[in-house]
């Protein structure tokens, strides 16, 4: 009879132990993580129209001639667009490199809130700047022709450079 009680108590104790252990196992939480990494480099793009050389319209002594283009800048960093000309910003006679126009060419942003004219020189000058994004910039090239300028064909090259600001 005493053994019988002992066995009952032993089974009860085991049962309590199993229940208690089982309860503690379900209460534990396990976790793990995945580490993600991405390299997103800064990038700048500059697009000028290349449908051929630009022809200025309205060239006449004592007046301004004009050519319009659309410049595209794409950047994921703050950017600065600069512009420069050649020969001191002056157009030169096509067939004779020694003959230059009297006045320098000017560049103007003509979009919303148009900017003031930028007079072209041999050195880069600030033209536009902005935060990351894609920008379409309508731009006018303006050339004043003086009466002392020879009537002939003139040409020049205009360079733009976009860089992180």
């Amino acid at each position: 009879m005493r053994i019988g009680r002992w066995r009952i108590l032993s089974h009860l104790a085991r049962l309590l132990l199993v229940v208690s252990l089982g309860g503690s196992i379900t209460a534990l939480s396990v976790s793990d993580s995945a580490h993600l990494q991405a390299v997103y480099p800064s990038k700048l793009e500059l697009v000028l129209p290349h449908e051929g050389d630009l022809q200025m319209l309205g060239a006449s002594s004592g007046n301004d001639a004009k050519a319009s283009i659309l410049i595209t800048v794409r950047s994921n960093v703050d950017w600065l667009l600069r512009v420069k000309g050649y020969h001191g910003g002056r157009m030169q006679k096509v067939t004779d490199s020694g003959v230059l126009l009297k006045n320098q060419m000017r560049v103007q942003y003509t979009g919303a809130s148009p900017s003031r004219d930028v007079v072209l020189t041999n050195s880069y000058k600030n033209y536009r700047r902005g935060p990351p994004g894609e920008y379409l910039m309508p731009t006018d090239f303006k050339q004043r022709f003086a009466w002392v300028d020879q009537p002939t064909n003139y040409t020049t090259r205009i360079s733009f450079k976009v860089s992180p600001d």
């Binding site: 480099p41 129209p49 050389d53 630009l54 090239f141 040409t155 205009i158 733009f160 450079k161």
Partner: peptide, 20 residues
């Protein structure tokens, strides 16, 4: 990659005018 992409990008265009 960051150093390479941060290099300035430049382009140019030619402009003609005929003065009569």
């Amino acid at each position: 990659s960051i150093v390479a992409a941060s290099q300035p990008v430049s382009d140019s265009t030619r402009v003609y005018a005929s003065l009569p």
